[in-house]
Design a protein around this nucleic acid. Structure first.
Lengths: 132, 132
DNA sequence: ATCCTTGCAAATGATTTGCAAGAGT
DNA sequence: ACTCTTGCAAATCATTTGCAAGGAT
């Protein structure tokens, strides 16, 4: 918890209960949609409003504390910012898992020299073991 | 034009002027949003409604004629279905370019054996030459 | 002739905004 | 004390739906 207070302050955001709650729930679930966040949070903080979640997600994305994961055929997921990694997405159950990017990949060679790369996003869609 | 008639029929969809127009505009621009489609089409087919575009995009995605490209921080783009490839996206101007996937990549090794991969999506975000 | 598709308008759903009260620094 | 943030309700924007008329096979 204290960890997130530091992150928020370092980003110029006040450490409110609402923000800390959002970050904790997001961290626990790994990847979560806005609706998911709201439902989870509602159980422990029934007064925390949807509007507050929206406002804060927008803000924390701007401050690079949170990252959006846009998904084919569904709402975006959100996660805490960390190193670039692959998302393995089950089309059946919607589960999202992380995987490290194979270091043998020369990611810099992906784009050409004329393009200044800032970040990448790799999503693999398919069916997980449980859903097969 | 006749080419798209075949594709539609093969997918079990009637070849209407509206659908052919959508496919042509989409092909011309490479990648386009719903709004973009509507504005482009409006110039030549002012009566073609937004609702028709929505209905058809949904249908053609189901039939695998069209593919959604979800984008960080903006609406999804759509393109004609073709081989998997990389999208190079300029965060400044929104331009989307295609690039072949480096064949030296062992894409099958990206996921583990337990995951049945159906398709992948690789987006590189940064700044294009013109916007630098 | 039949069934599918269109276009309109209305309905729904998601996200954003304005503002007064409350909380963090 | 000051400024930022919250929560509510209303406003806006995006997407979907129902239905009667028109078009494709």
């Amino acid at each position: 918890m204290n960890y997130y207070i530091e992150i928020l302050k370092a980003s110029g955001l006040k450490a409110t209960v609402q923000r800390l709650t959002i970050l904790e729930v997001m961290s626990d679930s790994g990847h979560i949609t806005i609706d998911g966040l709201y439902q989870q949070i509602n159980q422990t903080h029934p007064t925390l409003s949807l509007a507050t979640i929206y406002k804060n997600i927008v803000m924390m994305i701007e401050k690079k504390v949170v990252v959006e994961i846009p998904i084919v055929g569904s709402k975006s997921y959100y996660e805490l910012k960390k190193q670039d990694h692959i998302h393995i997405i089950c089309k059946e159950c919607g589960d999202v898992r992380d995987k490290e990017i194979d270091p043998s990949w020369h990611t810099s060679s992906l784009a050409d020299d004329t393009f200044s790369l800032s970040y990448m996003q790799i999503n693999l869609y398919g069916t997980c073991l449980e859903c097969q």
